[in-house]
Design a protein around this nucleic acid. Structure first.
Lengths: 259, 259
DNA sequence: TATACTGTATCATAATATAATACAAAATAT
DNA sequence: ATATTTTGTATTATATTATGATACAGTATA
């Protein structure tokens, strides 16, 4: 009779790799530079594990160490990843010239967003005059329900799916006027469905009107959204509807992803 | 009497993490999508190791698997890295508004480059009209000696260092007119040193004039370069010298990194 | 000055990653 | 259409590696 069986090993999962990636992921908008103990704490890893993993990532050029403060920060090698991703995303390649043209034509901030889980992520950012730093860089994630890009992509799902997502997905309050009212969000999405675009105001940034139109595959699946931000100082929703919306919608429609 | 001693383990280096990162690094401009056997081959890893590591990266959301073709490609999570880097780079934050302003003023492609080993890497790309895709995305690396940004940063080193770098660093022929003549490159760098900016033509792309000016710390160390590309169809070096150079130089000078 | 915290280094050992292997499925060659 | 090769998937015995406990020097804080 055997003793208690030891839990079976998952031999298709490399836990040391996973731990190392947690180190890479610890850096963020709020955590620009960290010491070893902070890294251990923030990642939940043992101090020795953190030491080994950090040392490995530093030797491989992923993170830089400030010799004076002994703190680490992301190295340029992080951007190798962006480069690889951007080349592999056919849609971004397809869309880029149209987005550049649109940016020139409208003289405003133009972005391309992709859906990821319950968020959207900005994969192209063509900043306009006075675009904030956070709104000029790729990789930012925003809850799909809060962003006009997210809402407009959701609007192309069937109504049951829309309602389920609106009920369950997370919300985040960015500004004093960011809505947390799920009914209001549902109304916004259903209106977007009807009109073919979504317009919102002061949801993610406090002084912006946002217009977004979906990019769909041939079978109607939303895979991305084009998004334009306008300063409320010089724009109204009415003016945006007349002067911006047609161009956004037309550009989005002109981009037909292969699949 | 002991037998032959086994080699000492480097307990500060995690080789499984290093192998996993090799998988992440296998994707590139030339390798957008790969199957398991290709990944094993390109990374030099054993097939079983590749299987485990790929599976782990897939479970963690770093790579996507096309269920039909069973091939993998980078996932959006790659851009999380870019986001983290761009927040941690103080200079990029400092420079971004100036670059956006410059882009609007000149109506041309404006980039920011950082030195990395014997290359430069583009960390900000503000594309102008008709900028190619490869010239619109961050993360691209170019040999420092070939790029105007690289040359202009090198020009701010002492002459012995310049000569050593020119003799030893790699070159890459991008166009039919990319120079591989190291004396010509040295002359270009020394001229940049004298004039405070570098101008080159048809070195990385076949139809471009390039103007770059260095961004230096207070103690004179070059840490980045602002770079403008102009189509040769509508520009000459003389015209660029009069209408573009002063603005590039002035903007570069106005950005004083803290350290 | 005392104490707490951080970073660095070491090592015995348990757990994990390895690589060999088998086999089904798919692709390619004949 | 069939045979062969290649690819992808799954499993396992075992060697190697990663673990975490520990010690200690240096730094920061009380």
């Amino acid at each position: 009779m055997t003793g208690p069986e030891k839990p079976r090993q998952n031999t298709l999962y490399v836990s040391s790799l996973a731990k190392g990636l947690r180190i890479l992921e610890v850096f963020s908008e709020e955590r620009l530079e960290l010491g070893l103990s902070e890294i251990a704490r923030e990642t939940g890893l043992d101090k020795s594990a953190a030491q080994r993993l950090v040392n490995t990532l530093h030797q491989l050029g992923y993170i830089d160490k400030n010799a004076e403060t002994r703190r680490y920060r992301p190295a340029l090698k992080y951007l190798d990843m962006a480069y690889a991703y951007l080349w592999s995303d056919n849609l971004v390649q397809l869309a880029m010239p149209r987005l550049i043209e649109l940016s020139r034509q409208l003289q405003q901030t133009i972005n391309l967003a992709r859906p990821i889980e319950q968020h959207i992520m900005y994969v192209v950012r063509l900043p306009g005059y006075r675009t904030s730093y956070g709104a000029s860089i790729i990789g930012r994630r925003v809850p799909a329900l809060t962003a006009s890009s997210g809402r407009v992509m959701l609007s192309r799902q069937d109504e049951n799916t829309i309602r389920k997502c609106v009920n369950e997905w997370p919300l985040k309050q960015y500004t004093g006027t960011t809505t947390l009212d799920r009914q209001e969000i549902l109304d916004s999405i259903l209106l977007a469905r009807e009109k073919g675009y979504c317009m919102s105001e002061r949801q993610v940034l406090p002084d912006e009107i946002n217009v977004a139109a979906p990019i769909c595959t041939n079978d109607g699946k939303p895979v991305a959204a084009i998004h334009c931000s306008l300063p409320v100082i010089r724009w109204t929703q009415e003016k945006a509807e007349q002067e911006i919306v047609p161009h956004i919608v037309e550009t989005a429609r002109s981009i037909s992803p292969p699949r």
